[in-house]
């Protein structure tokens, strides 16, 4: 589904990503791991259009999406969550999810603002779907609460629901397990599996090795902005180069 070719980006003399090549396959969970500062989030940001790569290309289902602006990337079918949660804290939880559905609710401006009949029907459908998504992440009872009032782990889940709202082809999770406790992480594991069943492909960046080993189908290891290794969880956990890069981390 997603093909990354020779992605290179410099930040004022510092090489953030160097000739990165990756492939994300449909209906599979691909994980991106590596030490802090290895460039994982930078890869995400280039896919999502936040940064424009200096060299290299990104293809989504064969279409070149390199350098598109973030909102255009979303329109192509890729959504994301953030390492540092970026919720619409002034809006309710369900409104957050509804905003996520923005690209799928294409409407005529005048019908939209003046609440025509077609708009009201569309809204009913949208609300239904939003509630379903909130149930998926277990937060439906908080639908009308201001998003900023939820606990940290719950806010992460809202972000996930928001990212899933437009039924994207591919969703990018940036350290979704950060700040979660064990139970929440297990729930996340199950949730990711269900997302795949729903038809969305998942690419995630994560530090929590147990989660990665449990949920990922393919793992890419990045170190210092470069590809280090690629393989199944079993292969990666036995790869001497990976073990060396992670020496001292000891979470495998």
């Amino acid at each position: 589904m997603l093909k990354i070719d020779h992605l290179t980006l410099h930040f004022e003399g510092l090489v953030a990503t160097d000739d990165i090549c990756m492939e994300v396959e449909d209906h599979k969970v691909t994980a991106l791991i590596g030490p802090n500062g290895a460039g994982k989030t930078t890869i995400f940001n280039q896919i999502a259009g936040v940064y424009k790569p200096d060299e290299g290309k990104i293809y989504l289902d064969g279409e070149d999406i390199t350098g598109l602006r973030p909102f255009e990337v979303c329109q192509k079918g890729i959504t994301r969550t953030y390492q540092v949660i970026k919720l619409f804290s002034g809006m309710s939880v369900i409104d957050n999810v509804l905003v996520g559905m923005h690209t799928k609710l294409e409407r005529n401006f005048w019908q939209d603002v003046f609440h025509s009949r077609s708009m009201r029907e569309s809204e009913k459908e949208a609300f239904k779907k939003a509630h379903e998504l909130l149930e998926l992440v277990g937060l439906d009872q908080y639908a009308d609460h201001p998003a900023g009032s939820l606990a940290y782990g719950q806010q992460r889940l809202v972000e996930i629901a928001r990212a899933l709202a437009p039924s994207p082809k591919l969703v990018l999770f940036d350290e979704p397990a950060a700040g979660m406790n064990l139970k929440e992480k297990n729930d996340l594991n199950e949730m990711i599996r269900r997302i795949i069943d729903m038809g969305t492909t998942v690419l995630l960046v994560e530090h929590d090795m147990s989660l990665v080993m449990n949920v990922a189908d393919i793992i890419y290891v990045i170190n210092s902005g470069q590809n280090l290794a690629k393989g199944s969880p079993k292969e990666i956990s036995e790869d001497p180069a990976v073990i060396e890069a992670y020496l001292g981390r000891g979470e495998i």
Binding site: T79, L87, F88, G90, V99, G100, H102, D112
Partner: peptide, 25 residues
């Protein structure tokens, strides 16, 4: 309470997140 209005409010709260939801801020 329309898609347009929600998009406008989203731009207030988080320009980045609004972009990743497909909103041309």
């Amino acid at each position: 309470h329309s898609r347009t209005g929600r998009a406008c409010v989203a731009t207030r709260d988080s320009v980045d997140a609004a972009g990743s939801c497909g909103i041309d801020v």
